[in-house]
Design a binder for these strands. Sequence first.
DNA 1: GTTTGGCACTCGCGATGTATGAGTGCTAAT
DNA 2: ATTAGCACTCATACATCGCGAGTGCCAAAC
Lengths: 339, 339
Amino acid sequence: MNDRAQVLLRTLVERYIRDGQPVGSRSLARDSHLDLSPATVRNVMSDLEEMGLVTAPHTSAGRIPTAKGYRIFVDTLLTVRPLQKKIIQKLQHELDLAANTTDLLGSASSMLSAVSQMAGVVMLPRHGTVMLRQVEFLPLSGNRVLVIIVTNRQEVQNRIIHTARTYSPSELDQAANFLNQEFAGRDLMEVRASVLASMREAREDMNRIMSTAIQMADQVFSASETDDYILAGQNNLFAYQEMADIDKLRQLFEAFNRKRDILHLLDQSIGASGVQIFIGDESGYGVLEDCSVVTAPYKVEDRIVGVLGVIGPTRMAYDRVIPIVDVTAKLLGSALTAE
Amino acid sequence: MNDRAQVLLRTLVERYIRDGQPVGSRSLARDSHLDLSPATVRNVMSDLEEMGLVTAPHTSAGRIPTAKGYRIFVDTLLTVRPLQKKIIQKLQHELDLAANTTDLLGSASSMLSAVSQMAGVVMLPRHGTVMLRQVEFLPLSGNRVLVIIVTNRQEVQNRIIHTARTYSPSELDQAANFLNQEFAGRDLMEVRASVLASMREAREDMNRIMSTAIQMADQVFSASETDDYILAGQNNLFAYQEMADIDKLRQLFEAFNRKRDILHLLDQSIGASGVQIFIGDESGYGVLEDCSVVTAPYKVEDRIVGVLGVIGPTRMAYDRVIPIVDVTAKLLGSALTAE
DNA sequence: GTTTGGCACTCGCGATGTATGAGTGCTAAT
DNA sequence: ATTAGCACTCATACATCGCGAGTGCCAAAC
């Protein structure tokens, strides 16, 4: 593909993103500043069509980019505009207001959606190491115990577990003290392993509590809420004409609810070093056919722990969205690290 | 309105709910089993139209009920079908699986939406008395303290508060012990009042911690998450033709997000003794123009603590929805009481 | 006087036709 | 290689028409 074709493709995509209408040869010739006649442009378009980069909705319409065309565009033709300082500050300020991690992620998601005018999504961080800080047991009625676990991330998790018999408050205190002394500051996974091991050794009365502790650690670890995301601004998507098909919109929203597919998609970016873009059917999910997803991983202390991004119509202002996602990922990362 | 007119209105509403199409005089004459000619039916329809109970979308269409017509229907003409035992058992079973209060409310909401095929909504319970069970302080870096409050409802709330200076773990322990001894089992509001009072009396060093405790109690109390609801199955609403207008749908979803209006509406049912129905514009909110909301308050230990319900198109199967909402409210109430 | 049959009338809806304009592909000239 | 010209295509908008469903009203019937 020669230079001229590139310029034309680029102009075409830019125009289409701006107006949402198929671009004809005349206006394209004018906008490209190449001083070409419409006829020449038509020839080039014909080539581009053969390459699968653009397509005509019908015989006598202009051309619109295909997913492949967008791909070339974002990979080689796009120049992103750095985000305005003012906006960055606003983002930073918004994040500063958040009181805890959940709030923080929520804010990030809302911001993504607000600034991009599309849907924002933030995967919950997978802290590879969940350190135990403190455990508390609280007896409830009917052989149930409320377990409160505080982890290094200042997150408080609580579960109710059912025990074989009733434990007195002092027994539970004893157990909690033991666990705290023994395991505070250690990895939750490790704790579980240790407890399992020591259980095999001796079968005292205390072990029953230990075993409940294992149950609990198990739950906290396995059913950890890490496989989830926070979505915001889905309603923004209503506004785009490409979402006018109510049935497709419904399917999209259902995918949001189902979470699995979206999570899987986000997961694919967890290895990437920067912004990544899935255009149209590239994602491999039918519901995202007319959507693009712009993602970026975010780091805590230089370790990637999660992914965030923006979901919107394929025809989105990539030059704006990319820096938005990029910056938000960085800001969220440092906000999390600071905590 | 005479007997005959009532039968006809009832038949008309039932048919319209079934088919979603304006009902003409001929089919209405047939379905009503009154052995009347279409012409007679037309005369009656004319009367009903004058009363504002039915309306014709255009001259040569059949009639459809107005909000007022639906109102008469549900108030005086409707016979509800009791819910199948099988379904009740399913609901009960689903609720039994929930591990904590939040789960329980979520399940109830999902169930409402699943069984009704519309959107389910459950207001968070307002436990008038939030009892303090236990307080824990945990020092964090940078003059921050993580406060964990366990209340009578087995809910664990946690906040991070910023303090004027750094407190040692033993100081915090001391404070927590003091608070627990003094105030465990008492109303959170009361605790706050007491602490405020004792602060005025003496100005010892301990008071600083006390004051943080007040801050915290304040937050827990005021910013209590009680003014909220759990919504489920909004996506079901996509399926109804009356929601085909994408812009209206958007507005509706935005109202769901905004929460205020919906909450206010639910709030109106908190005094009612049973199922309550808002039909169309009766709710007073423009976005709910084409929607009906069926609500019922739910009780814990015979005190009404919240409201749940179903939101769907005005043209819904009231005879099915009403018992669904009714039963769910009762089941949720007893599930909450049992906890 | 209530009920009914009859009849003219209305309106939405889908099918059909037509004009318009934007834009293309192709070819021949530059 | 580029361009002007021209025939052609197609979406869109708009008007027209026929059909069917259903109404309103009136006069006849019970």
